[in-house]
Design a protein around this nucleic acid. Structure first.
Lengths: 199, 199, 199, 199
DNA sequence: AATGAATGAGAGTTCATTCAT
DNA sequence: TATGAATGAACTCTCATTCAT
């Protein structure tokens, strides 16, 4: 284990995170073996411990990697000046695209994060809450300026958006031929119709 | 192992299925131990094998138990004479209620069924497909009689309904205080607004 | 367990011994299960313990059953008045026929008796020694009256006869189509030529 | 598990095969534990699986080890130019010596090979058949050149030689003080007298 | 005379982890 | 930076045995 870290080291560590993501996504945390991860990287099982102190740490890193970027995106979106509909589209697009770009790490975050001990989960929890709250904020903003129907429960709405995106995310990861943009379009269509007023 | 089975036997087997459902739901198939299941039943680990030939068989039974009833409900709903909106409400109600009534078995079906070997998955696949197709049929019917917007993709719509219900189902299982009827109401509200024409 | 024993009891016990013999012969003592034995008798596993106190006792009974008769035969043969050649033929005939008649019990005696604890083996050891000694006696008698070559070591000869018979016994048990009388004839031919003087 | 294998690896694997041979010979395949084998090597039970994928594989390797060399010897003997008697002596010598040199592996091959699944047994079957056929060939040659009596059935004769050697082999393994050369001499004496013509 | 249900000990096997090299 | 070898704890599963009915 290295504190400073050469270039090669950090490259390999990235590779390790990605390999772990792929393996965890396929077999689940408990179903996956450290040997599987190592093999996917082209190294031997024991060598993995040069990059992770434990399998659990690997899971933590994968989860973090999985949501970090998409939480940052959300900050940008929420703080922007666009109308409600545009923000919703941006959110869904960012969320679903993550499933393609970030390897399978986001799926792992969704399905396996609960196997982390509380200590390691706290940072993730923060980020997740942050995400949900900002999304809730978007809905509240929408309600305030009349775009969203008054009867909509913003907390529920945020959960629903997240839930739907994750449900499709699973399908996206499992089927690489699924047309991402079509899914985005149909999801936003449903959600906008579902939440906004009709002219 | 019994073919016909005494009264006691079938009672205990039911108990075993429920215990397995709870344990698999909490720890995942690979994270759960047969010891956990047995302990939850109040028997010893080895005795579990009087009721299941293998842990895998237990998973299979749990999955079947998890969806059987709700697939049957769907048949009734789809074949009924109600208008689209009513059928959608009935579907969501049935689906979400399952998460409370059937213990955690439906969650297990969703999250762990892929760890079953193909042979044991085929029956489940049938049932799952059946469900989705009937739901698709409801949407098509809705389109035909003008209730559903023409732009709606019925295949997508069915997946979306299922996905959203499962996403909320997870939350329902995890939080026993969550108000089921409120969730049902808000989900159907979103979906009806999202898919149907406005008057 | 019964001390007096009804007619049915002793019939069933015989059946149990034979079933155990067959199963031990096929799978070996440690490879065989009490369940296998019970199934072969058409009863349930637990019921077996009505006839045997333990699996080990079953092995003991099988072994005893396997050699008892053939040891008795040997007494008759050895004490008879026939010439050496006739006694040898009778011995081989009795030994090899046992493999067909007594089910597989003799094979079990040969292959599995060593797994019995010493206490239970002592009676068998006696019988076995008795057999070998009488056979040795036949050879000594043969030497004394000139039928057998002087260079023959009677102890070795007895072991050789037993060994050869057991080797063929295995084949006889394994292949039910093997012609018993042909084997007997060829074996005796070999042995007589091997041990006796030529005229 | 290693494909090519370091020096240490292959040494340890050899040790594992020998340890397994000893343990299987003493307790039988089903009666022996992987723990016994490991302990005999001075390693822990789990470490055994670094050298064998399964207990069954261990049995396969032991069997192979047990006969390989003696099958090769047979090829040399059969293809040689010696007279029948010499070849028979060489065969018996090679066979019985194997019981001393190769540890208990040959005994294991004889007694336990049937517990191997067919797939793993095929190679052994080949080798065993090869051996028997070559031995038959020796007898046929002997008949052709007049050394062996015309009434001898070569197939029977080969089986008889093998059977007798194995019977004595058992005794040799069980009793380390048994004089090997005496046994060899007496066996060949019996067999030569039994099968060949008298001058 | 027989069985259903349970048990507990132990089996074979896997696997995260360690560490000298 | 990486690996070969080993470990020990945990796991799934089997099985001889018991006993109330």
């Amino acid at each position: 284990m290295q504190e400073a870290g050469t270039k090669k080291y950090s490259q390999q560590r990235q590779a390790a995170v990605r390999a772990a993501a792929a393996v965890f996504a396929e077999k689940g945390f408990h179903g996956a073996g450290t040997k599987d991860i190592a093999e996917r990287m082209g190294i031997k099982q024991g060598s993995l411990y040069y990059y992770f102190k434990s399998k659990e740490e690997a899971l933590g890193e994968v989860c973090l990697y999985g949501i970090q970027e998409y939480v940052e995106h959300m900050a940008t979106i929420a703080d922007g000046e666009q109308p409600f509909e545009a923000k919703l589209v941006a959110t869904v697009t960012s969320h679903l695209s993550s499933y393609r770009e970030r390897n399978e790490a986001l799926k792992v975050y969704n399905d396996e994060r609960l196997y982390l001990p509380k200590a390691r989960r706290s940072r993730l929890k923060e980020l997740g809450s942050d995400y949900r709250q900002r999304l809730e904020g978007i809905f509240e903003e929408g309600k305030a300026n009349g775009a969203v129907r008054q009867s909509v429960d913003c907390h529920f709405a945020a959960q629903a958006v997240i839930g739907m995106c994750n449900a499709w995310g699973d399908l996206i990861v499992r089927d690489p031929d699924l047309d991402l943009f079509m899914v985005i379009q149909k999801c936003t269509d449903l959600l906008i119709n579902g939440f906004t007023k009709k002219p």
